[in-house]
């Protein structure tokens, strides 16, 4: 079966984001960008399914500015077979992204669509679920284990608040990855070179006839309230005394 994987170019997870002084957003100029960490896990899982003989082809899809090509090349270097970039300089909301991905799915007819559980920039955790709803497919969110059973179904173990639960989904289905699903591989230098000649198709939202008008307007982006600087204590006794002073413990 064919696998589709969605990847997003986001601020690198190690960078501490800075809010712009005018309150219009987070400053992304000259900031290191990378593939969203959950999407790396999604690409890795797709590659492992191919290595197991479950998948025949992996197509990586990204929606974003021209530079999202770099993110797709990373996916290709990891092991994806080809890529599709839907280029847009607007900041697209999860609903618009899900609609575009649904169109790609209708065109490509994958057996499984793998996404990260959330992007570390907007922290929405919506796109996979919305995509599944639009396609009328089952969804295996927050997956920590994915076992494809023939061409009919997939068993997904999900990380839920109290522990783990396993659901069985009819294929085709949507899976979103949690952190513990796997350890993504590094692309080797020869594979990075090879990735440069793999096919990368360029599209626009208009090609798919999707209206991407935002539904939400960001009025303001602010720094969260700062905590007052604390104190360092010298001993366990002092620590206990100070905690008791606050009245939190008796």
């Amino acid at each position: 079966m064919k696998l589709l994987v969605a990847v997003k170019r986001v601020i690198d997870f190690n960078v501490k984001p800075r809010v712009k002084a005018d309150g219009t957003g987070v400053d992304l100029a000259n900031v290191k960008m990378s593939m969203n960490p959950f999407d790396e896990i999604a690409v890795e899982e797709a590659i492992r399914l191919k290595e197991k003989g479950v998948a025949t082809e992996i197509v990586a899809v990204s929606i974003g500015p021209a530079k999202a090509q770099e993110t797709l090349r990373t996916a290709l270097a990891m092991g994806a077979d080809r890529a599709i970039l839907i280029q847009s300089d607007d900041e697209l909301e999860p609903l618009a992204v899900a609609k575009l991905l649904a169109k790609v799915a209708e065109e490509e007819q994958p057996g499984l669509f793998v996404l990260g559980k959330q992007a570390i920039d907007d922290d929405s955790n919506q796109t996979g679920q919305m995509l599944a709803a639009l396609l009328g497919w089952g969804q295996g969110t927050f997956a920590s284990k994915v076992e494809v059973e023939g061409s009919e179904s997939v068993a997904v173990t999900r990380e839920v608040d109290g522990g783990l639960e396993t659901v069985k989904l009819k294929l085709p289905a949507v899976v979103t990855t949690d952190l513990r699903l796997n350890e993504p591989r590094y692309a080797s230098l020869p594979n990075i070179m090879k990735a440069k000649s793999k096919p990368l198709a360029q599209k626009t939202p208009a090609d798919y006839g999707v209206d991407t008008t935002p539904r939400l307007t960001t009025l303001k982006v602010a720094e969260p309230p700062r905590r007052q600087a604390g104190v360092k204590v010298a001993s366990v006794e002092e620590l206990i005394d100070k905690i008791r002073e606050t009245g939190v413990i008796g």
Binding site: I11, K16, P17, V19, V26, I120, D121, D122, D123, R215, L216, T217, T218, L219, K220, V221, A222, E223, P224
Partner: peptide, 16 residues
């Protein structure tokens, strides 16, 4: 709502 791992707080208005 918080964005960027809580490093920023966005005020959003919904047109839906």
């Amino acid at each position: 709502r918080p964005i960027y791992a809580g490093n920023a707080v966005a005020t959003v208005k919904s047109a839906d």
